[in-house]
Every structure is written in C-alpha cells, then in structure tokens.
Amino acid sequence: MTRRIFGVRTLGLLGLGLLLVGSYFGLFVAPAERYMGQVQRIMYVHVPCAWIAMVCYTAAFVFAVIGLWNGKPRWDARTTGAIEVGAVLNALLLVQGSIWARATWGVWWDWDVRLTTSLVMLLLFAGVLALRSFVDDSDRRATWTAVATIVAFVDVPLVYFCVRWWRSLHQTQSTPETVSPAMVLPLRLNAIAILLIAIWLIAQRAKLERERLRKEQVDEPARVTAGLEVTDA
C-alpha cells in the first residue's frame, strides 16, 4: 500500500515540477501576443485547467457507470475524488477566465453560452457532492451519487461544443495552426502537469473516502452488507 501511494505521489511531484517549468516558459520565454500583449499569458493556466477539469468530470462519469454496474465501493470513492478535483479546477477556470475577460473583452462576465455552461457545470457537480453529503446509508449514497453524476455529465460535452453550435462571445477552440508555435509548448507542458497533479489529488481524495467508509462500517457494523468489500488498495 505504501508503495502504491508513493507511486501516485511521485506522479504528483513530477506534475508540480512540470507546472513550474511550463509556467516559466509561459511567463518568461513565450512571446507576448501581438494584440493582447502580456495578458494572453493567462492562457497557459486557463486552458489546461479547462481541459483537465473536463477530463476529471469524464473520469467521474466512467467511474460512476462502473460503480453502478458492479457495486464496488472503491468506484464510488474514485467518482467522488474525480468530481471534487474537477470542481476545484472548474472554479479556478472561471476566475482566471473572468480576469482575462476583463482585460481583453472589457467585461468580467457575460451570460454568453460558454461562460454560462461552464458555471452550470460547476453548480451541477457541486450539487452532486452536496447530495452525497445528505445520504447516510453508504449503498444508497453510492447509487445516487453515480446516477446524479451521469445526469450532470450532460453539460460537459455542451461546454465543449457550445461555441461551435451557437453564437457566443467566447472564441472557438484554438488549434496548433491558430496558435504561434512558441505558445504551444508551455500550453502542453502545463496541461500534462495539471493532469498529473489531478491524478494525484483524485487518488488522495479517493483514499480519504475509502477511509471514511471503513470508519462508518466500524461504527455501525449492522450496516455492513454481505458482499461489500472493504479494501485498502
């Protein structure tokens, strides 16, 4: 067990180091954008946060389906971890976006479809976590968390595609062709960095959830159902 946690921690530390390198490139090596100037450097944290938040929510969706299918508590713990880390990145994404918007668009916020669906995404998954905290029985909690996660996930592809489907203030996705090559490197480094950090945090959060479950069942042995595995792994 110690070895496993150590493995994930190594991943996390690697991510932290990479985030420093990527941000160094983003802040000091990459050129300022020809029209936006320095403020465009927010991109190197904003876009990776957006990508990885959506990766986290997608992972939560997959974990939820698996958990609902086989009923193993470890998938409930992983779902919870992925949602919580996704929500943290989601919140950061909104704040970074707001700062960037003020400088380039001229407003802190607007009810444009990309901004609205991103905010809704945070509220939906925060709602799943809230729902979770209201259910005492661990089996029911796992089931309802999974169902709510699957339904909340509907908004995630919407966040991605809305700028292509509808008119918006937010621009559409950039591609390597629309981004200067010097800007692509820090973007990719930070995306990998935040992905590694997210995996690390999700593992920690899932571990916490498993420990909580174990404690719940020690406190109330009557609730332990046959077939419910409590594993440390």
Partner: peptide, 17 residues
C-alpha cells in the same frame, strides 16, 4: 453602454505577421 470585444481563436507572436 456595454461594449465587449470578441476576439478570434488566433494567438500570434508580434513577428509572425
């Protein structure tokens, strides 16, 4: 009284004009 700039998805260095 509310003007918003909508920029495109292009991010360029000053030199690659």
């Amino acid at each position: 009284q509310r003007l918003m700039v909508k920029h495109d998805n292009q991010y360029r260095a000053p030199e690659d004009f």
